[in-house]
Design a protein around this nucleic acid. Structure first.
Lengths: 180, 180
DNA sequence: ATCCCATATGTACGAGCGTACACAGCGGAC
DNA sequence: GTCCGCTGTGTACGCTCGTACATATGGGAT
């Protein structure tokens, strides 16, 4: 049999789950499909994650961390010389530019919190993390509003198929940043 | 056997689908569950709706119409004496106030467009309808931004479990309405 | 009166699912 | 060295699902 006490086993399963959701959506997520993708036996997935909710929590948390790292790496949100609205609009453009796969995956896990209370704390983390980054440049209320607007704009692009309009996004974000 | 050529049959199935999604989410939607809810045989649902996507399109469209009617009935968006931001914030408060069932149902069908291209035109209709109503009071760009912000604020309430803060929503909406 | 077809129905099939459970083997406790 | 428990594995059960299909029937067209 395969080696025991594989410390990477759990991580391999999470990575596989993310690939499965990216390819076929949450609808295609099952203990079996993840096991096949990760090339581990069925019992291994059910052992490490009793329920699919648990697996989704781990996958969403990992996706969030990846996004946060990508934002931090870009660094524009910390540079006081850049305009927050411009920077956010550019960030969205970059995110939405490539194929839909990446952003679709993250939003699908994020939106799954609508019906799965277990995911809500992780979804809240995402909002708070982004709002926290923005709080270095604006007040908390504005930061929160910006996060909501970013979410709304991305969603409309993804849900309606409308192409992303960076100029429009920048203008809308700029209005929110303009204090009371 | 039951009577033939029942003209209400199709409508009964759509109504049942909406109740099923409201109760158990899209995950619980199947030809069988809808057939049971509508008290029709299985073959009836598969006959009228070859795929579940078709059924979801019909359900989302009906839900959208219900929402549009509710907004129109409130009427505040047409009264030039009211503030658009205040009116929208109040509308959201009303919508989010009761149990989550109604708004959860509509958002779940709406968000399903992320992965189901068949739903995107209907999701786009929803955005355009609301933006159209708002266009009587503001320019089209502002209207579009308001719709995005409304979506974002509602989502964050629903996804994170945060209680709705009408004062905050009104302030954020007000900033967007303030012309550039 | 006859025919045709959209509508309506019941049943059966194969696939995939979560779950449960018995068993295997490693590693630390003692 | 012995034992125990956590990690890992394979298999089988019962269920629900979409789909296909043979069949029934009513009403409009001819």
């Amino acid at each position: 049999m395969a080696r025991r006490h594989d410390p990477e086993r759990r991580q391999r399963i999470i990575d596989a789950a993310i690939r499965v959701v990216g390819r076929g959506g949450i609808a295609g997520l099952s203990h079996r499909s993840v096991a096949a993708e990760a090339d581990v036996p069925l019992g291994s997935t059910t052992y490490h994650f009793k329920t699919l909710d648990e697996l989704m929590v781990a996958a969403l948390r990992q996706a969030n961390e990846g996004f946060a790292k990508a934002v931090a790496a870009r660094g524009g949100l910390e540079d006081p010389r850049t305009d927050v609205a411009t920077e956010l609009a550019a960030l969205m453009g970059e995110w939405l530019a490539g194929d839909r796969t990446g952003v679709e995956l993250e939003y699908e896990l994020y939106l799954a919190a609508l019906r799965r209370p277990a995911l809500r704390p992780v979804a809240a983390e995402w909002c708070e993390d982004l709002a926290g980054q923005l709080s270095r440049r604006t007040d908390p209320v504005t930061a929160r509003a910006l996060v909501a607007l970013v979410d709304g704009i991305c969603l409309q692009v993804l849900l309606t198929g409308t192409p992303y309009d960076e100029t429009y996004a920048r203008e809308a974000l700029r209005r929110v940043t303009a204090a009371g």
